[in-house]
């Protein structure tokens, strides 16, 4: 029997990889730095997921309990991998808490880090309490507290959602599209309109990228049924007149400067490379791409490979990714890892 597959990170991708490995009768070990499994959807308290509309606690919670019940999956929480050595089929991982794991292969499902809006000070986050992020709104919805202005707890009458906060911006070295924020914002906008029917929700966009089948149920649905208004403008600054927030920019479709009062401004924050990616890159000896995500070789001939043989990668560790695709990629990476282990066992037998 070959050694287990080490899975680093217990978010949707890690949980999916562990389940896939265990389903084929092989053992897996999950290492996660947090105190529980589930990754961003659970730790950041997401509300209803795209595109299923299932609560994150149910959908991802289901993946967690499925792995928890599985005897072939061993879980190490509150720790990280400090060193990783050996060769494909025979790796040794030393954990920060002193643990030692013998593994045949490793799958990095280390995910991403939410962009910190403080890095775009002109948009008011950190200065005005009523400027919040999509993650905060998700938490307002998932906790059942409802959407309220943090400053005084009033229900907002006018809400602005600013897209591409921490994405598509050379000024802050983030040239990628975070891929999911348009759809998430449309989803949040609809939820706000549903819970506060008298509210007015505006989305400030440069492009709307509710790709594929998400176009209808998110972009179109939010406009047609929920009367969310889309304005093509990149906001210049968010200030305050002392009572309400003041959003300034140019409405590019009418070539006119705009200065509009809002009760709440929501930053649709993007996906950064995991803040620990430099460490992960050094520990596992895998290359990062120029954006700081884990590099993948050619998309056509390889399944979830990294620059180091025997170490695989899946999900948002490789770039902004949806939950669904992270899960699918993790299954592919699990298959690649198992294939490699089987090949090395056969080689040893000959």
């Amino acid at each position: 029997m070959s050694k287990p597959v080490l899975i680093v990170g217990g978010g949707p991708a890690g949980l999916s990889a562990a389940h896939a490995v265990a389903s084929s009768g092989h053992s897996a070990v999950i290492v996660d730095k947090a105190d529980r499994l589930g990754g961003a959807p659970i730790l950041s308290g997401y509300a209803k997921l795209v595109p299923s509309h299932e609560w994150a606690s149910d959908a991802i919670g289901g993946m967690v309990s499925r792995v928890d019940r599985n005897k072939l999956v061993d879980v190490h929480l509150n720790t990280t991998v400090a060193s990783f050595s050996g060769e494909p089929g025979n790796f040794t991982a030393m954990l920060k808490d002193g643990g030692r794991i013998e593994a045949g292969a490793a799958i990095l499902t280390t995910g991403f880090t939410h962009f910190d809006s403080v890095n775009k000070p002109e948009w008011g986050f950190g200065t005005y309490p009523d400027v919040v992020t999509t993650v905060q709104v998700e938490q307002m919805l998932s906790s059942g507290a409802g959407v309220k202005c943090p400053s005084d707890g009033r229900a907002p009458d006018r809400v602005a959602i600013l897209l591409c906060v921490g994405s598509r911006d050379r000024q802050i070295g983030r040239e990628w599209c975070s891929k999911i924020c348009c759809t998430v914002s449309a989803n949040i906008a609809m939820e706000i309109r549903e819970s506060l029917p008298n509210s007015n929700v505006y989305i400030y966009y440069m492009d709307i990228r509710t790709f594929g089948l998400l176009e209808g149920p998110y972009y179109w649905e939010s406009q047609e049924t929920h009367k969310v208004k889309y304005i093509k403008a990149r906001i210049a600054e968010v200030t305050s007149d002392g009572k309400r927030l003041l959003v300034k920019g140019e409405d590019t479709l009418v070539k006119r400067p705009i200065s509009i009062p809002f009760d709440m401004v929501v930053h649709a924050i993007g996906m950064d490379p995991n803040v620990d990616n430099m460490t992960i890159s050094a520990v596992f000896d895998v290359k990062l791409n120029k954006y700081g995500f884990v590099e993948k070789p050619s998309a056509y001939l390889h399944m979830g490979e990294t620059s180091r043989p025997g170490v695989f990668v899946a999900g948002a560790a490789t770039g902004p990714e949806t939950i669904d695709d992270s899960i699918a990629q993790a299954q592919a990476a699990a298959m690649a890892a198992l294939n490699m282990l089987r090949a090395s066992v056969m080689e040893a037998a000959e």
Partner: peptide, 27 residues
């Protein structure tokens, strides 16, 4: 800079024959 908006306007046009689908527009 504009600061004066009639937020009922879309609803008003929508209520008149022909204007029903104005909120679909994506410019």
């Amino acid at each position: 800079a504009l600061s004066d908006y009639n937020e009922n306007m879309q609803d008003e046009i929508e209520a008149l024959a022909g204007g029903e689908h104005i909120s679909r527009c994506w410019q």
